[in-house]
Design a protein around this nucleic acid. Structure first.
Lengths: 152, 152
DNA sequence: TTTCATGTAACTTTAATTATTACGAATCTT
DNA sequence: AAGATTCGTAATAATTAAAGTTACATGAAA
């Protein structure tokens, strides 16, 4: 299976949009993420339905953020994307008649449920504003390393 | 992508083997799990390399457990299977130049790392003997519900 | 020496994501 | 009003990884 990278993609897109004045087209976002504009529209369309972004057609159209980045969390975005399956490992048969397999499933399910709960809690802890701040920090660091702005 | 169900499969196989006297053939194990004998051999072969099971060819051949079920954990089996990817969700690009994407990756990676650590800890908590005991409990319960052994 | 069973390579099928093509609909500019 | 721009979306193909299948070699027991 391929891994679902849409959460990563929409985060990337939203942060670029936050750094950018005015709407960004699907075309430009697609360039940022090395993908296809149609893929961008499909994924961003889900965020639009959730009221997180808005889109406009025609000249000077494109995508804009409408949500408050200080409130929007990774968990909300995960939900907006339809809560895709988190694990690449799973039971062979979800509803087995075999009692042996039922024991196996119960043990695995319990472990996966705990891990999923923790992951979603961590997702809920991180807002888009947190990510934007982290980016700003990395950006400042890079500038410092390059010596940009150092009088000399 | 399909989900990897080999851990579930080998647990199922090991418990059936534990309940069974003498070696079990790939054919019989495959029937238990609704799969193909070659798939069983492929997967069980990894366990053999790790010294968890032994195989014998020819008449009266098949698979037998050599490990101590009281010590063998889900985590060890996960490792023996090559530590397959746990998550079906991931970063779009693992080594991006883009600072924005680096921030996104860092946040997601941190959350996934925590969830993975928890999952592996839980896997380490469960031995095959625990699963066998759980199966025995379920088996007894079913017998009780059916009234088997109830004098009447 | 025949039968049974594993060992493995090569190939096919299946399932899921992502990418692409094509075209329609709306909006802005001139 | 014409034309360019941009989203909306359906339909289809490509990609990727797991699981299944076929074929045949190897070895052990009756």
């Amino acid at each position: 299976m391929k891994r679902d990278s849409r959460l990563s993609s929409v985060l990337h897109a939203l942060l670029h949009m936050a750094e950018h004045d005015g709407p960004m087209t699907s075309e430009r976002l697609a360039e940022c993420m090395n993908t296809n504009p149609v893929v961008v529209r499909r994924t961003m369309g889900l965020l639009r339905e959730a009221g997180i972004v808005a889109s406009a057609r025609g000249h000077a159209g494109g995508w804009t953020i409408t949500a408050d980045l200080g409130i929007l969390t990774l968990r909300q975005l995960h939900e907006v994307l339809g809560e895709p399956a988190i694990f690449a490992i799973g039971n062979r048969n979800e509803t087995p008649d075999c009692l042996v397999e039922q024991s196996v499933n119960a043990a695995l399910d319990a472990a996966f449920a705990e891990a999923e709960a923790l992951l979603l809690d961590r997702f809920a802890d991180v807002t888009l504003a947190d990510l934007a701040a982290d980016f700003a920090r990395r950006h400042a660091e890079r500038r410092a390393r390059k010596g940009v702005g150092n009088a000399k």
